[in-house]
Simulated assay, not measured.
Amino acid sequence: MVCIMSLLELIGDDGIVITSESNLSVDSALALTCSVLLKNGKIEPSYLEAIKQKHNEIGAYYVLAPKIAMPHARPEDGVNEAALQITVFKNGVNLESEDNGDVYFSVTLAAMDSDSHINTIMALSELFQNDEDIEAIINSDNQSDIVEILKKY
Rank of each mutant, 00 (worst) to 15 (best):
133 D>N: 13
63 V>Y: 07
125 S>F: 15
101 G>K: 05
127 L>D: 06
139 N>A: 14
4 I>H: 06
5 M>V: 14
50 A>G: 12
113 D>A: 01
66 P>A: 00
115 D>L: 15
77 D>Y: 06
70 M>I: 01
87 T>N: 15
123 A>V: 13
7 L>E: 09
33 T>C: 02
86 I>K: 00
139 N>C: 03
24 L>R: 14
118 I>E: 04
125 S>Q: 15
69 A>H: 02
135 E>D: 13
3 C>I: 09
69 A>I: 04
39 K>S: 10
143 Q>V: 10
33 T>V: 01
36 V>H: 05
45 P>I: 01
87 T>L: 11
3 C>F: 12
57 E>Q: 10
60 A>C: 08
58 I>R: 08
112 M>A: 14
45 P>Y: 08
115 D>P: 13
122 M>H: 11
58 I>D: 09
94 N>M: 05
131 D>G: 05
118 I>A: 08
39 K>A: 07
117 H>L: 13
46 S>C: 01
137 I>D: 04
28 S>W: 08
75 P>V: 11
84 L>T: 08
28 S>I: 14
7 L>S: 05
117 H>A: 12
4 I>E: 15
104 Y>W: 03
33 T>M: 06
116 S>H: 15
142 N>K: 04
89 F>I: 04
81 E>G: 15
20 S>D: 03
79 V>I: 08
27 D>W: 13
11 I>Y: 12
3 C>L: 14
118 I>W: 06
150 L>I: 06
19 T>E: 08
33 T>H: 04
53 Q>W: 07
67 K>Q: 07
135 E>I: 12
79 V>Q: 03
66 P>D: 02
22 S>A: 06
38 L>Y: 00
31 A>R: 09
59 G>M: 07
124 L>Y: 06
96 E>G: 09
143 Q>M: 07
12 G>I: 14
20 S>H: 08
57 E>I: 15
27 D>I: 12
96 E>Q: 15
148 E>P: 01
114 S>H: 15
25 S>M: 12
72 H>I: 09
42 K>F: 04
120 T>Y: 12
41 G>P: 00
101 G>Q: 03
151 K>L: 04
104 Y>V: 10
80 N>A: 07
21 E>V: 08
113 D>W: 12
6 S>I: 00
50 A>P: 01
12 G>M: 11
120 T>D: 14
26 V>H: 03
72 H>Y: 02
66 P>I: 00
49 E>Q: 04
